[in-house]
Simulated scan of single mutants.
Amino acid sequence: MAVDFTQAIKDLRSTMASVREVTDLTALQAQITELESKAAEPTLWDDPEKAQVVTSSLSRAKAEHDRVTGMDARIDDLEALVEMGEEENDAETLAEAERELVAVTKAVGELEVRTLLSGEYDEREAVVTIRAGAGGVDAADFAEMLLRMYLRWAERHGYAVKVMDTSYAEEAGLKSVTFEVNVPYAYGNLSVEGGTHRLVRISPFDNQGRRQTSFAAVEVIPLIEGTDSIDIPENELKIDVFRSSGPGGQSVNTTDSAVRMTHLPTGTVVSMQNEKSQIQNRAAALRVMQSRLLLLKKAEEAAERKELAGDIKASWGDQMRSYVLNPYQMVKDLRTEHETGNPDKVFDGDIDDFIEAGIRWQIAQRKAEG
């Protein structure tokens, strides 16, 4: 069946018109100009915290502007390629245009999803924690599989990732791991990954080859910024120091550089051991603690608003995705119904379709709640 390039390109331009409307390129360019002016001030770095906010905001604004204008140019190039192929009746050029159409359609879809990320913290970088749940050694192994999945996803996109804390299980896998994804909108994208993940497979750790179900919890929080107002009194924090450990509990350094921070009023605990010094680990732990408490505060406020509004609708629950390797092969998101029969690709980081479906589902939920 021949591809209707005219209609496809028309649809792409229509979607891009909506993207531009939401993005507001005129306002974005004005913001870039203002930020460039601030970044050029000779006294900017007299206040490093303020300078960091200005430079990171400028970088985000430029990236957003280039992403939209670059996609418009890519659609223009596609249209020119189609015209050339049709004028010369060149099957090879038209085949190339068809491949580019598939790629551009996917890229425009991702850009459209980005415009849906309008939550208060969606544009932030993300802190992700994976914890092994029920299932013993299989759950610890599953936690490590999920870590690799997210690291491969980030690698596919060229996103910077920093592993902050790793707690290894005794036999295999991980008890827990915390990492940052340092790119704008990481939180908006990955927030839909939060919840309980379930794995069904023949256990490689069972000598009788029985099927095992195991669970892992994924927590995603926005990375705190210097402009956020979360002050934690010193007397509300308990700080313990210990030696960093590697697989099997072996000590990986000879000094007490790892830090465990407990917020006494809420019982929130954060551990950091992957930085070089106790001071660095303490600073990293405080930043994650502030992020968790900020999200906790917002969740409490949202719950209070729902109570005042008389909203008693039941939520879906935490279990959000099943990965089945036996007796059949399938990964299915229980909220969006999105699924694939290729778990290997998913575990290798091919999760964009799940994230996109999750974001669209999340937006629909917000609209339904008014």
Rank of each mutant, 00 (worst) to 15 (best):
D256E: 15
S257V: 03
A258E: 03
M261Y: 06
M261Q: 07
T262F: 05
H263Q: 09
L264K: 15
L264N: 11
L264V: 15
P265F: 13
T266W: 09
G267W: 10
G267A: 08
T268D: 08
V269W: 07
V269I: 15
V270M: 04
E275N: 11
E275T: 04
E275P: 00
E275H: 12
K276M: 12
K276D: 12
S277W: 02
Q278E: 10
Q278Y: 09
Q280G: 03
Q280C: 00
Q280Y: 03
N281L: 04
A283F: 02
A283M: 07
A283T: 07
A284T: 03
A284W: 01
A284H: 01
A284K: 04
A285H: 06
L286Q: 10
L286D: 04
R287P: 00
R287K: 15
R287H: 07
V288N: 08
V288R: 07
V288Y: 05
M289A: 08
M289S: 09
Q290E: 12
Q290N: 12
Q290H: 10
S291H: 02
R292I: 05
R292M: 11
L293P: 01
L293Q: 06
L293K: 06
L294C: 06
L294R: 14
L296M: 14
K297R: 15
K297W: 07
K298H: 14
A299Q: 15
A299P: 00
E300M: 06
E300A: 12
E300V: 03
E300R: 13
E301Y: 02
E301F: 05
A302Y: 00
A302K: 11
R305Q: 14
K306I: 00
K306V: 02
E307G: 01
E307D: 10
L308I: 09
A309C: 04
A309G: 08
G310D: 04
G310L: 09
D311F: 09
D311C: 03
I312N: 14
I312V: 14
